[in-house]
Design a protein around this nucleic acid. Structure first.
Length: 936
DNA sequence: ACCCTCACG
DNA sequence: GACGTACGTGAGGGTA
């Protein structure tokens, strides 16, 4: 063979594409595109672009002569037989990715490329085996992947190619990243472990230490052998104690290259890519940018550039806010003619997106009148359409404005158009207001919810408009007070001057659209799209509807209770003053402290920086137990005062005059963990724990012929803790339907009685909240040492809990946030604070957040599915009224109770699926009655 | 505006 | 050695 011939023949070069790895990366880095059939295809598009890019390599001198796409098949592999925890904590793929898997195979076929999958082996092993065979045959190999495990295969003639970063990687890359050459990478990976795949490794050893040890001693076995003679340290202890886990890890990370080739090497020869099937595929999914390029070199350059940007892993550049002109309130238009209104609507259609904000006469979305609507289609392109200025007085002088009905009729098609995205800041409010005028706004995005899903817990990110504008745009919004004044002189927005109203309202729309342009790409980049699109956004109209429906409250019942409480308060007041020997304001903690501790000489020291006496319930209970009569009476007085002022009196005020019902407002961004909060009035803290308080719940009633149905998740947070921390004894107890506190008492104390069950319950909750021995000690009235013993026993009996706590804290420290099972992030900026109690507070909150947040995610999913589920079951008259964290309250015709109970139970119990498969059942308890009180 | 207290999960 | 101790909320009343 002459030299000439060797040089002329293109050397065999096998490209092995890690399809599975690619799909996940593409999914997270690309927007959630949908094709015209409504299928999610974001990951498919990314994948297709990647194949396209590889196809372009065909023509290169050192390009592929052979190629195979390798995919994972099934989830059980020989590694699971080796170690049952392998990849055990990996969440199932996102709901909108699952339907894309078959499409990935379609895409591969469209390129006429061989696709290889083999049950029992991971894609990595298939790639490893092909690599070995090809190297033996003297071929070059390129592995198209960014997986660190596969980097073990890099050797002369074998490199890796990251299409998203457009980077080729050889041995130098591995040395730079891990400090060791590829052949020693397996030893390093075994020591450091992998939390994603759940490869255990050795605790406390990360990439740095692992690479140092391997460099020093040569390989894993040598490190383990040398461990006993190393300097004494935590690391040395861990190396000895976990040497078995390290060896197991070594086997788990090793790539298997002895499997039988599913297809012989020669069958992977590239024969070119026929255009026909590819064109069909691209057309079917509407991948126009690629179609244009298929058409030939004449295709538009701009299109190709846009597509290239996506292929390299960068999302299409979002409109940069830096490029946008600064906010200029003088640029806004007041729309008072039909022509101008039409012009703005046309602009919205041209952009495909419009920010919308409504202004009303009051804050209450259920009964306030619509005063105006603002729109924005781009930076400084915003208008205000007044419709209700001058108020409702027919004879009052009014500014020139378009009639309400005309404006609504013109806006309705735009606001309901499937192809136009409407953006609002707290759009729940606008959905309610516009819904009352027969407009169903869709599709929509809500910047307050987007901000929350990105930045919950970030101390400098307020989610409200004014704070968000300051933080993200560096802009100070016109304050509401500048428009309507404040205090006694405050006027309704309907009374505001048109120029001021325009500047204020149009600015809100302008800011909202600018915020959207910042948040939208961030959602994808930061992995928040899933929680936003699958949980929180769908909830917005559901909550709007609940708020609008409200709940009927029996005013007479409340009024009767108020009188009873007044009598009780007056009687107690007399007795307390008599015992004190003087009248004083019982509600004043200052005066009460002076009476109890100075005048009557009771024990109970000062507390807090203010130097004031503490007189809270724990102190008064203690004094009462020591025989102080006055303390007991103050406690009774406090209970009645609280019930009267906060509930029986205030709630009567909150009954809406038009509907006769109470309409709370839920905040989707109120609680850092993802819970809802309820305000004006708060209907999530209606009394139930005491009999006196419970009477208030009887005032929440159903309309005649209807009943109230209350459905509670039973012990949902403990169940989630059992699942997330993987605690066998707790999971078993829940699976068997046991009383969980009894089971805990049995495990901890060996016997179950009222006392041990009560203590067990306290400890169970302590675990959820991030325990400290002092806290537990004071709750159980034992010493800190005894509390510590109890905690240790708990950890022993329920292995998994302490691991969960440590892992959660480590992740929180490393990344700054925790995550729920559904991917909701909560940030903890204080987790690394140098002030101890601040840091410890953040740690306790971080332990609790994944559990409380997952519970919140689950009930939110149940709520979003409830309407359609009831509708489908032919139960349109069942109304969802309230959510109280683990409880949903409904009002429904008596005749629907049986059928609705089944649907509600199933929807709630199954709400985690299919996104998350829990290893414990979710229990749902349902009760019905004429009132909320009776339904429990 | 802030603290304390207390209602709920 | 002192600190202050369970997670997440919202509302009312007193005080400065």
């Amino acid at each position: 063979m002459s030299e000439n011939q060797t040089a002329a023949a293109k050397p065999n070069h096998l490209y092995l594409v890690d399809g599975s790895g690619y799909i996940f990366r593409a999914y997270h880095q690309l927007p959630p595109l949908t094709n015209r059939h409504g299928q999610p295809v974001g990951a498919v598009y990314g994948y297709t672009s990647m194949l396209w890019k590889l196809a372009a390599e065909l023509d290169k001198a050192d390009g592929p002569t052979h190629l195979a796409v390798v995919l994972d098949k099934g989830s059980h592999t020989f590694r699971n037989d080796m170690y049952d925890q392998y990849k055990a904590h990996r969440p199932p793929p996102p709901e909108d990715l699952v339907p894309q898997f078959p499409l990935i195979r379609d895409a591969t076929r469209a390129f006429s490329l061989p696709c290889i999958e083999e049950a029992g082996f991971e894609a990595d092993d298939i790639i490893a085996t092909y690599t070995c065979r090809a190297v033996e045959a003297g071929w070059n190999v390129t592995i198209v992947s960014s997986d660190k495990d596969l980097m073990q295969l890099i050797q002369p003639g074998v490199d890796m190619y990251d299409t998203m970063k457009n980077e080729r990687r050889g041995a130098d890359y591995v040395v730079g990243k891990f400090g060791v050459p590829p052949e020693k990478l397996g030893d390093v990976l075994a020591l450091m472990g992998d939390s994603v795949d759940n490869v255990p490794g050795v605790p406390g050893i990360g990439p740095k230490t692992a690479s140092k040890l391997i460099t020093e001693y040569g390989d894993l076995e040598s490190v383990l052998a040398a461990a006993p003679s190393m300097k004494k340290s935590k690391m040395q202890e861990n190396l000895i104690e976990h040497s078995d886990m390290a060896r197991l890890s070594r086997k788990l990370v090793a790539l298997h290259c002895e499997m039988t080739l599913p297809e012989p090497l020669d069958d992977l020869t590239l024969k070119g890519i026929p255009e026909e099937p590819l064109r069909d595929f691209l057309e079917h999914h509407g991948f126009k940018a690629l179609l244009n390029r298929l058409g030939g070199p004449a295709a538009a350059v701009a299109v190709a550039a846009a597509s290239a940007a996506i292929t390299s892993g960068t999302p299409p550049p979002p409109p940069q806010i830096e490029d946008a002109p600064p906010i200029d309130c003088s640029a806004y238009e007041t729309v008072v003619t039909e022509e101008a209104l039409d012009r703005w609507i046309a602009a919205a259609y041209a952009e495909g997106i419009v920010a919308v904000d409504t202004e009303t006469s009051a804050l209450d979305a259920v009964s306030a009148a619509l005063v105006g609507v603002s729109l924005s289609t781009g930076p400084n392109l915003a208008c205000y359409i007044p419709v209700g200025h001058g108020g409702m007085d027919m004879f009052a002088e009014k500014p020139l404005q378009l009639p309400l009905d005309l404006v609504l009729a013109k806006l309705k098609p735009l606001l309901e158009d499937d192809s136009i995205l409407k953006v609002g800041q707290n759009i729940k409010y606008d959905l309610t207001v516009l819904g009352r005028h027969g407009i169903t706004v869709a599709p929509f995005d809500d910047t307050i919810v987007m901000s929350f899903d990105l930045d919950a817990g970030q101390s400098l990110a307020g989610h409200g408009m004014d704070e968000a504008a300051k933080t993200h745009l560096g802009h100070t919004c016109i304050s509401f007070k500048d428009v309507v004044g404040s205090g006694k002189n405050q006027i309704s927005f309907a009374e505001a001057q048109l120029d001021k109203a325009t500047a204020y309202a149009a600015e809100d729309a302008d800011v909202t659209l600018r915020l959207w342009k910042l948040f939208k790409p961030r959602l994808h980049q930061e992995g928040a799209t899933r929680i936003y699109e699958m949980v929180d956004r769908p909830l917005v109209p559901v909550i709007a509807k609940m708020e609008h429906t409200g709940i009927k409250v029996d005013r007479e019942h409340l009024s009767r209770l108020s009188s009873e409480f007044t009598d009780g308060i007056a009687r107690l007041e007399g007795e307390i003053h008599a015992l004190a020997g003087q009248p004083f304001a019982i509600g004043s903690t200052q005066q009460l402290g002076a009476i109890l501790f100075d005048k009557l000489g009771l024990k109970g020291g000062k507390k807090g920086k203010s130097g004031a006496y503490s007189t809270d319930v724990t102190i008064l209970e203690k004094l009462k137990a020591e025989g102080s009569e006055i303390s007991g009476k103050v406690l009774d007085w406090r209970q009645l005062s609280k019930l009267k002022s906060t509930y029986t009196d205030a709630l009567q005020q909150q009954i809406n005059a038009q509907t006769g019902r109470v309409h709370t407002s839920y905040s989707l961004t109120g609680a850092q963990t993802g819970r809802l909060s309820s305000n004006d009035p708060n209907l999530q803290n209606i009394p139930i724990r005491t009999e006196t308080g419970r009477q208030i719940r009887h005032a929440f009633v159903a309309e005649p012929g209807n009943v109230i149905l209350a459905a509670d998740y039973s012990q949902i947070e403990l169940r989630l803790a059992a699942h997330m921390a993987d605690v066998p004894a707790l999971k078993e107890a829940f699976a068997n339907g046991e009383d969980i506190h009894n089971r805990t008492a049995e495990e901890l104390f060996g016997e179950v009685n009222r006392d041990t069950r009560g203590r067990a319950k306290t400890i169970n909750f302590a675990i959820l909240y991030g325990i400290s021995r002092w806290g537990l000690a004071s709750r159980l009235e034992i010493s800190a040492d005894e509390a510590q013993d109890m905690i240790s026993r708990y950890y022993e009996r329920f292995p998994g809990i302490s691991v969960y706590i440590n892992e959660t804290l480590e992740k929180a420290r490393a990344r700054g946030y925790t995550e729920t099972l559904f991917g909701r992030k909560t940030w903890f900026p204080r987790i690394r604070a140098s002030i101890q109690h601040e840091r410890q507070g953040a740690e306790r909150a971080a332990i609790n957040a994944p559990i409380q947040g997952t519970s919140a995610d689950i009930i939110k999913r149940a709520m979003a599915r409830m309407g359609p589920a009831l509708e489908k079951a032919g139960l349109p008259d069942v109304k969802m009224l309230l959510q109280v964290h683990d409880e949903l309250v409904f009002e429904l015709p008596e005749s629907d109770v049986e059928a609705a109970s089944a649907i509600i139970r199933d929807t709630m119990a199954g709400a985690a699926e299919p996104a998350v498969k829990l290893s414990v059942p979710l229990g749902v308890e349902i009760g019905t009655g004429p009132s909320w009180g009776a339904a429990h």
